[in-house]
Simulated assay, not measured.
Amino acid sequence: MMKKYIVTVIGISWLVTGIVFLNPETALNNFSVIMLIPLIITMIFNKADNKKSRNDISILKRPFNLKAMVFSCLYPIFFILTCGFLAVLFTQGVIHLPAKPVTWIVTILVTIFIGLFSALGEEYGWRGYLLPNLTKQYGKKKAVVITGLVWALYHIPTVYLVARLTGLGNPLLVCVVQAGVVFLSNFAFSYCYYLSGSVIPVIIYHSIWNTFNTALLGNLYTGKAGIIDGNIFLINGEGVLGLLLAIVPLVFFWRKYDNGMEREK
């Protein structure tokens, strides 16, 4: 079933991406629709699974704990702030503080809330369905690696085509680096899921990441600068600096999977 799910969700995602980018003039405004595909495909597969097992427990109703929630809020902020600090430290970025800091903060909070719905589109599939089902079949380490590969593959055509449109950098290089970041970031996302066995904290994590990363370090998809102005491909959390920084905590997360943890107490 998982092989069919992976082939289906990747195949449809790539097909829709191709259709969206047939019109370059509207592609950048419409490509976010691709984030809904994992949700739709997962709902279909999950319904089929529930009929077979006669188990109708909703993915979103699984309980979560405080530790998972704290991690989901603090880790992405810490990671992105570290990227920003290193960018400024090594003179690769210049800080331009917002003219109205309070308005900026309010905008960030509102955007995070709105972003929960788009994050749901991906996380309902990746950490809500794919990761737990792969964990049952293969154990945590293999499940995390496979989920990361699927997540990276899902992003490849969108990132490549966006890079071609925006001229942010060599499309192939941007695509490879971003796919690497997605794969490595999956270890932290999966850890967040395993802390409670719930996808809710991971959805919050995803929305905070998307919002804070673009606000502070710029938008890799549109080329719009953030508070720290520099080469977005270089300093962004989904760029070169993010790729290098994401390697650092891998040993910590990998050891956690060694503990046979389904929920960390």
Rank of each mutant, 00 (worst) to 15 (best):
H155S: 08
F45W: 07
A48I: 06
P249Y: 12
G239T: 05
V9H: 06
S58N: 14
V88F: 09
I34Y: 00
S58Q: 14
I235M: 09
S58R: 13
I200K: 11
V70W: 02
L234C: 02
Y191M: 14
I41P: 00
N55K: 10
L131E: 13
S58T: 12
W151F: 13
V177Q: 07
Y154Q: 07
P132Y: 01
I228D: 01
L28Y: 08
K61S: 15
I208C: 04
I203D: 02
F252P: 09
L97E: 12
N50R: 12
T111P: 02
L173T: 15
Y160C: 10
A48L: 08
F64R: 06
V176L: 15
A225Y: 08
R164W: 01
L168N: 13
V182I: 14
G93Q: 09
L243C: 05
I34R: 02
P201G: 08
Q178S: 05
D229A: 04
N231E: 09
N46P: 00
L216C: 01
A27N: 12
D229S: 04
V248K: 06
R62Q: 14
T103S: 01
S185Y: 07
V106S: 03
V110E: 03
V16N: 07
Q92A: 15
F253N: 11
N231G: 08
V159K: 09
E123I: 08
K265G: 13
G197Y: 06
